[in-house]
Amino acid sequence: MREQTITIYCFIDDFFHATGRKDDAHCKITDAELLTTALLSARFFYGNLHSAYGYMQAHHGVRHIDKSGFVRRLHRLQPQLLALFTALGRVIKELNCSCVYLIDSFPVPVCDNIPIPCCHLLESEAYRGKCVSKRRYFYGFRVQVVTTSDGVPVQFYIHAGSFADITAFKAMELDLPQDSQLYADAAYTCYEVEDLLAECEQIEFRCCRKSNSRRKDEPHRAFLKEHYRKRIETSFSGITGFFPKKIHAVTAQGFILKLILFIFAYTLTQVIE
């Protein structure tokens, strides 16, 4: 744990130095220390910021700061957190020689159907979604994740739970190298998007075909699609394995911030280990 903490801190601190970001002289802890603590909370403490901060104080000499001040600064650093993930994803894509990527989504419920009227975190029917694989409805978000063939996330997109996968995919700003192959399940079937990616981005979008599809797959291609598609489910299990029984948040923005931390922490774990 100590080695991972030092590695995460060095990565964040080097990124801030490279981008010219400087800490406020009046702050008790640096931005790198704060983001390191937040990522450790997602990786080792099920998102509990207080426990992670206690560990950093006891083992790494981080100075004391009140909880509300810590949370406010963490919210202000969300753009830097996303920039860090983008930079890490870019490096992973450069090292991915196979140019094979996978995309799928997983639901993150704020609550189940019955307590929806009592939920004050979200207040819109747009968040009421359906998880087909589990045959149940949920109220919350859905996360689109793009990973390498080894299951390392390089990009994600968080949206309301009611949006279909292909609808969210159209809204997502896909950032993959040319000549990449992107594997997806049948929920992403859209011939226009498939042709557009091939023509404009030189990306081969390989969706699993439905039984009534106009573009049938040869057996070997269908086997490859099924083979690659299943790998991403392992990544989802790894990400949700960091979740507590219930993700604690006071606002929807805080809930999304914790989701970003869980995905980022899983990606760092895959890279470091």
Rank of each mutant, 00 (worst) to 15 (best):
Thr5Asn: 07
Ile6Leu: 11
Ile8Trp: 04
Ile8Asn: 03
Tyr9Trp: 08
Asp13Pro: 02
Ala18Asp: 12
Ala18Tyr: 03
Ala18Pro: 01
Thr19Phe: 07
Gly20Ile: 05
Asp23Ser: 12
Asp24Lys: 13
Ala25Met: 07
Lys28Ser: 10
Thr37Lys: 01
Thr37Cys: 13
Ala38Phe: 15
Ala38Cys: 06
Ala38Arg: 01
Leu39Pro: 08
Leu39Glu: 09
Leu39Ser: 09
Leu39Arg: 07
Phe45Arg: 03
Leu49Glu: 08
His50Asn: 14
Tyr55Val: 11
Ala58Gln: 14
His59Tyr: 09
Gly61Thr: 01
Gly61Ile: 00
Val62Thr: 08
Ser68Val: 02
Gly69Ser: 10
Val71Phe: 06
Arg72Ala: 02
Arg73Gln: 07
Gln78Ser: 10
Pro79Asp: 10
Gln80Phe: 02
Thr86Tyr: 00
Gly89Glu: 05
Arg90Ser: 11
Val91Ile: 06
Ile92His: 06
Lys93Asn: 03
Glu94Thr: 07
Asn96His: 08
Cys99Lys: 09
Val100Ser: 08
Val100Met: 06
Ile103Cys: 09
Ser105Ala: 15
Pro107Met: 04
Pro109Val: 03
Cys111Ala: 09
Asn113Ser: 12
Ile116Met: 14
Cys118Ala: 13
Cys118His: 14
Cys118Asn: 14
His120Trp: 05
Glu123Gly: 09
Ser124Ile: 01
Arg128Asn: 05
Arg128Thr: 00
Gly129Pro: 06
Lys130Phe: 14
Val132Phe: 07
Ser133Glu: 13
Arg135Val: 03
Tyr137Asp: 08
Arg142Ile: 04
Val143Tyr: 04
Val145Met: 06
Val146Thr: 09
Val146His: 00
Thr148Ser: 07
Gly151Met: 02
Val152Ala: 02
Val154His: 04
Tyr157Pro: 11
Tyr157Asp: 15
His159Ala: 11
Ala160Val: 09
Gly161Lys: 01
Gly161His: 01
Gly161Gln: 03
Ser162Lys: 14
Phe163Ile: 10
Ala164Val: 01
Ile166Met: 12
Ile166Asp: 02
Ala168His: 06
Lys170Val: 00
Leu176Ile: 02
Asp179Pro: 00
Asp179Met: 01
Ser180Asn: 02
Ser180Trp: 00
Ala184Trp: 01
Asp185His: 13
Ala187Leu: 11
Thr189Lys: 10
Thr189Ser: 08
Val193Leu: 14
Asp195His: 03
Leu196His: 06
Cys200Lys: 13
Gln202Asn: 10
Ile203Gly: 01
Phe205Asn: 00
Arg206His: 12
Cys207Asn: 04
Arg209Thr: 13
Arg209Ala: 13
Lys210Arg: 15
Ser211Asn: 14
Arg214Ala: 07
Arg214Gln: 12
His220Met: 11
Phe223His: 15
Phe223Glu: 15
Lys225Ser: 13
His227Val: 11
His227Gln: 15
Tyr228His: 15
Tyr228Arg: 10
Arg229Lys: 15
Arg229Ala: 12
Lys230Gln: 15
Ser235Leu: 02
Phe236Asp: 12
Ser237Gly: 15
Ile239Gln: 08
Thr240Ile: 05
Phe242Pro: 00
Phe242Ala: 05
Phe243Glu: 11
Lys245Met: 07
Ala249Tyr: 08
Ala252Ile: 07
Gly254Lys: 11
Gly254Trp: 03
Leu257Pro: 00
Leu259Thr: 02
Ile260Leu: 09
Leu261Trp: 06
Phe262Cys: 04
Phe264Val: 04
Ala265Lys: 01
Ala265Thr: 00
Ala265Asp: 03
Ala265Glu: 01
Ala265Met: 06
Thr269Ser: 12
Val271Glu: 08
Ile272Asn: 10
Glu273Trp: 04
